[in-house]
Design a protein around this nucleic acid. Structure first.
Length: 337
RNA sequence: UUCGUUUUCUAGAC
């Protein structure tokens, strides 16, 4: 049975849900793990209805949900912002006494935080007996992502005073909080701490986040210096720098950064083109935008998404071509947004 | 055998 469960899990993780379901049906009997891996597959695919349906079905077959089941269902609710369903799961969790389990509670707090229901998130955090690193992180992330970075800092302080030391995730959000508050000094402190721990060498993402932090603080020179001292650079590093030049320089230097990037053999991604198109939009450069838009799919095989079209429509509107903007909108494969 | 937090873009107007 363990082997069969692994098979279902493998299909589910490859997003092959029909194969997963088939493998599931072929099992001699379905235990709690079988159901859990099936549900996890649907959770990742954002099929909430399907999940709730299977969740009911497992119970009607006499299998009662465990802590893993609830964490999975919460993740599904979180993914599709299903507040009511999430609250329903929450009350079942409390009734069955699963709340104290670390995985369950951090998912629960994370869900409420992502919904922007931070009072509820904080309340649950406070009443939880054990504040592990992950529970702190979801709370800090919640405050940071909802314009309450001061509170994020308070949490960070409290966390450290309780002897829990920040990990990479904590530092990501702390840097983000510095950015949105323009807290340059705090940012520089964190930078030192990160350097001391040798994390810049270990994790490119943290270096990229530092670039972003300096940009948000309006310090382009510092951002550029950070970029220069990175041990190596990925597309995220370049994108962060391009974003910085876009935001902090009114001239066309941002395009020079892009050219330099190409010169160094880095391949742009979808985000790069959103940045470039936005940069053109702000500067009213219709010609250049059209060139980038064309090059994107032609030279790099990146299919334009709604975001890319948004940039173009915005630009067309800005330079007074509302008619063309309309044409662009109506020509979209789908105009759901 | 199954579960939790992880960077880079996300405007404009007021």
């Amino acid at each position: 049975l363990a082997l069969g469960n692994t098979l279902v899990d493998m299909y589910a993780k490859c997003d092959m849900m029909s194969a997963a379901h088939e493998a599931f049906d072929r099992l001699p009997c379905q235990d709690i793990v079988s159901w859990n891996v099936l549900l996890a597959g649907y959770a990742d695919q954002c099929h909430l209805k399907k999940i709730l349906q299977e969740f009911k079905r497992m119970q009607s077959r006499g299998v009662s949900p465990d802590d893993v089941t609830y964490t999975t269902c919460l993740r599904a609710c979180c993914n599709v912002e299903a507040v009511t369903e999430g609250q329903g799961m929450h009350s079942e969790i409390e009734k069955k006494g699963f709340f104290d389990i670390g995985f369950v509670s951090s998912m629960l707090v994370d869900m409420y935080a992502k919904f922007g229901l931070l009072m509820e998130a904080q309340y649950l955090f406070d009443k939880h007996p054990i504040h592990d690193l992950c529970l702190w992180n979801v709370l800090i992330a919640g405050y940071t992502e909802h314009e309450q970075s001061e509170r994020a800092f308070e949490c960070l302080k409290q966390m450290q005073s309780k002897g829990v030391s920040p990990d990479v995730t904590t530092l990501f959000y702390s840097l983000k909080a510095c950015g949105s508050l323009g807290a340059t000094d705090k940012g520089a402190d964190l930078h030192m701490e990160i350097t001391k721990k040798g994390l810049v060498e270990k994790d490119i993402v943290i270096g990229n986040t530092l670039i972003g932090m300096y940009v948000k603080c309006g310090l382009l020179a510092a951002a550029h210096k950070m970029f220069d001292i990175l041990p190596f650079r990925d597309i995220g590093s370049w994108n962060a720098l391009i974003a910085g030049y876009d935001e902090l320089k009114d001239n066309e230097d941002v395009f020079l950064v892009f050219d330099r990037m190409l010169g160094e053999g880095m391949i742009p991604d979808a985000v790069t083109f959103i940045l470039l198109l936005n940069a053109c939009s702000r500067r009213g450069l219709l010609e250049r935008a059209s060139e980038y838009f064309e090059a994107m799919s032609k030279d790099y095989g990146i299919e334009p998404t709604a975001e890319h079209h948004n940039c173009l429509v915005d630009l067309l509107g800005r330079v007074g071509h509302l008619g063309k903007a309309m044409t662009n909108i109506t020509e979209l494969p789908c105009f759901s947004d």
